[in-house]
Simulated assay, not measured.
Amino acid sequence: MEDILRPIYQERASQPNTLGVLMIDQRQKASPLTDTFDIVLLIIVKESETPVYIKHYSYEQQKAALHIVSEEKLKEWMLLGTNRKIVEWLFNGKIIFDRNEYISNLKTELRDFPFYGRKIKIGLEFSKLIRRYLDGKAFFENRHYLDAYNHVVHSLHHLARLAVIENGFHPEVTVWNQVKQIEPEIFKLYEELINSEENLEKRLELLFLASEFLIHSRLKIGSEHLISIMAEKDQWSFNELQEQEEVIPYSVDLSVLIEYLSEKNILETVNVETKGHGLYHRYYRVPKKLY
């Protein structure tokens, strides 16, 4: 099928806006890596009115997907991890066209995993972890065990991704294979949740206890990105914080994260008087001991 697709990617490669072309083959039947397609063509362009354009093709008994992605959208995916397949595509795809070694440099950047990108990813995963953990705990305490189970599974997944990033790797589609090697303790928790013969209530009770310990052990690294931003001035209103460009990626979970960090004395709350009697504005700051 590659021969059939050649005119498509050759035409794109000839355009000055095209930065690179990758071909990803399906490595196993019904692979999640290629969304069940036999071949994926990834074309990265400098600029595009449509950040992501996708087209599907059929030839005899095979099917292919063409993905045209703007450089800006690609960088967003790489920074935020919102498209997990993209990392594996860049790592494992066959380079068909590479203007000024653009894709080769991207691969080097992914392998090096710059500290700046790692800090934001850790903050993002940690905030999602806290949200899922607290929501799951609330469901558990209200005896909604199936809803609690759903949130615990997600919280363990965020914990797994966090552990992978901490160790300097990008989380892949098959993140549990990575975690089994990197953090077997988290993998064992996941196995116990899925395979234990205990009743669901008991399984959840044990998982929340274990998760509390694992989350607490990551408080410092999980909050580091937010703390580094908040240390830039004495105190912040919530709205000021959520409008910070570097915080926007996890602003949806920011409120829960700030309250959790305040309870753990990682942040301090400051009451500022309003015109209303006994009513205060609530501000947040980093304790001086953390500077």
Results as ranks from 00 to 15, higher is better:
Pro7Ser: 11
Tyr9Arg: 12
Glu11Met: 06
Ala13Asn: 10
Ser14Gln: 10
Ser14Tyr: 03
Gln15His: 15
Thr18Ser: 14
Leu19Cys: 03
Gly20Pro: 01
Gly20Asp: 04
Leu22Glu: 01
Met23Val: 13
Ile24Gln: 06
Ile24Trp: 08
Gln26Ser: 03
Arg27Cys: 08
Arg27Tyr: 07
Lys29Leu: 05
Lys29Glu: 09
Ser31Gln: 02
Asp35Tyr: 03
Phe37Lys: 04
Asp38Glu: 10
Ile44Glu: 01
Glu47Leu: 08
Ser48Cys: 06
Ser48Gln: 11
Thr50Tyr: 05
Ile54Gln: 13
Tyr57Asn: 06
Ser58Cys: 11
Tyr59Arg: 14
Tyr59Leu: 10
Leu66Phe: 12
His67Arg: 04
Ile68Val: 15
Val69Ser: 01
Glu71Pro: 09
Lys73Phe: 02
Leu74Arg: 02
Lys75Asp: 05
Leu79Ala: 09
Leu79Cys: 02
Leu79Ser: 08
Asn83Thr: 01
Val87Ala: 03
Phe91Arg: 04
Phe91Trp: 04
Lys94Thr: 12
Arg99Phe: 07
Asn100Ala: 14
Asn100Gly: 07
Asn100Ile: 08
Tyr102Thr: 12
Ile103Gln: 00
Asn105Ile: 06
Leu106Asp: 08
Thr108Arg: 13
Glu109Lys: 06
Leu110Tyr: 01
Phe113Ile: 02
Phe115Arg: 14
Gly117Pro: 05
Gly117Asn: 12
Lys119Arg: 14
Lys119Asn: 15
Gly123Arg: 09
Gly123Leu: 11
Leu124Trp: 12
Leu129Asn: 02
Arg132Asn: 14
Asp135Ser: 05
Gly136Ala: 03
Phe140Val: 04
Glu141Arg: 00
His144Trp: 08
Tyr145Val: 13
Leu146Lys: 14
Ala148Trp: 05
Tyr149Lys: 09
Tyr149Asn: 04
Val153Tyr: 04
Leu156Phe: 02
His157Phe: 04
His157Tyr: 06
Leu162Pro: 07
Ala163Val: 06
Ile165Gly: 05
Asn167Trp: 03
Gly168Gln: 03
Phe169Met: 15
Pro171His: 02
Val173Asn: 05
Thr174Ala: 06
Thr174Trp: 08
Glu183Asn: 14
Ile186Leu: 02
Phe187Val: 01
Tyr190Leu: 00
Glu191Asn: 09
Glu192Trp: 08
Ile194Leu: 00
Ile194Cys: 00
Glu197Met: 12
Glu201Lys: 05
Glu205Trp: 06
Leu206Thr: 04
Leu207Gly: 11
Ala210Glu: 12
Ala210Val: 07
Ala210Met: 09
Leu214Met: 12
Ile215Lys: 09
Leu219Cys: 06
Lys220Asn: 14
Ile221Pro: 03
Ile221Val: 15
Ile221Gly: 09
Gly222Asp: 15
His225Tyr: 12
Ile229Tyr: 13
Ile229Arg: 06
Ile229Gly: 04
Met230His: 02
Met230Ala: 11
Met230Tyr: 01
Glu232Cys: 10
Asn239Gly: 08
Gln242Met: 15
Glu245Asn: 12
Glu245Gly: 05
Glu245Trp: 09
Val247Ile: 15
Glu259Arg: 11
Tyr260Phe: 15
Ser262His: 13
Glu268Trp: 00
Thr269Glu: 12
Val270Asn: 09
Val270Cys: 08
Asn271Arg: 11
His277Trp: 12
Gly278Tyr: 01
Leu279Arg: 04
Leu279His: 02
Arg282Phe: 05
Tyr283Cys: 11
Arg285Ser: 13
Pro287Gly: 02
Pro287Val: 06
Lys288Val: 07
Lys288Tyr: 09
Lys289Cys: 10
Leu290Ser: 11
